[in-house]
Design a protein around this nucleic acid. Structure first.
Lengths: 110, 110
DNA sequence: AAAAATGTTGAATTATATGGAAACATTATC
DNA sequence: GATAATGTTTCCATATAATTCAACATTTTT
């Protein structure tokens, strides 16, 4: 993260900003937050796809699935598999970063 | 990413370092890379759990699953669901970050 | 405003992730 | 090195993610 000055535009979601993860909320709150993240994930797919100027059908072809599947990935606030995420963004030639951080430590995963 | 100078230790995996995602490899290569990421993900769980000084059984209790399930998540190079990832790291009070970046743009998801 | 292109939805199917139980293996503790 | 604690594996059930097809809806183009 030192020399990562690659001048990037950041589209940070307000709702997604750092929050006290220590304080566990109610179950509804948890579900809400999960749905939010899933929704955002779908938005990301759509957003990147648009930037690549691809239709759902075209993206589907790249991956090997129907356009309906892409639509679902973009709109459904359902759960998703890591494999699916990687598959989609790979087709979109986008780099997926997944990291976990604790107090003082951060662990890069991909 | 500007004022993210929160002094963090980074455990970067050599194998995981930035690579040309534009150049799509063979299918075996793809699978290899996917397995790698899954393996690393498992390692992360284990690593954070250890830092929290928890046994698999204890972590399991926090989440509400058997220790065998934790073991599987840590060792299995299988696919995993986003919900599961979040659930585990939430129990570990660790913050999960997931982002997607293209050429010039980065999109924060969580 | 028709026609064509693109996106959405629902129902059904298939594949597979989640999970428990118990037996086994490994590692720590005495 | 026996005992206890921790982690692993296998077999199995259940839930649900991935996917298709086809009809429908929306948006874009002409």
């Amino acid at each position: 993260m030192e020399k990562n000055k690659k001048r990037m535009k950041m589209m940070t979601l307000d709702q997604m900003k750092d929050k006290d993860i220590g304080e566990i909320g109610t179950q509804e709150r948890d579900k809400y937050e999960f749905d939010l993240k899933m929704e955002v994930l779908g938005d990301m797919i759509k957003s990147v796809r648009k930037q690549r100027n691809l239709t759902q059908e075209q993206l589907g072809e790249l991956i090997g699935v129907q356009k309906s599947q892409i639509s679902k990935l973009e709109r459904n606030t359902k759960n998703v598999t890591v494999e699916t995420i990687l598959k989609v963004f790979k087709a979109l030639k986008a780099n997926v970063r997944f990291s976990v951080e604790m107090n003082e430590s951060e662990f890069k995963v991909a």
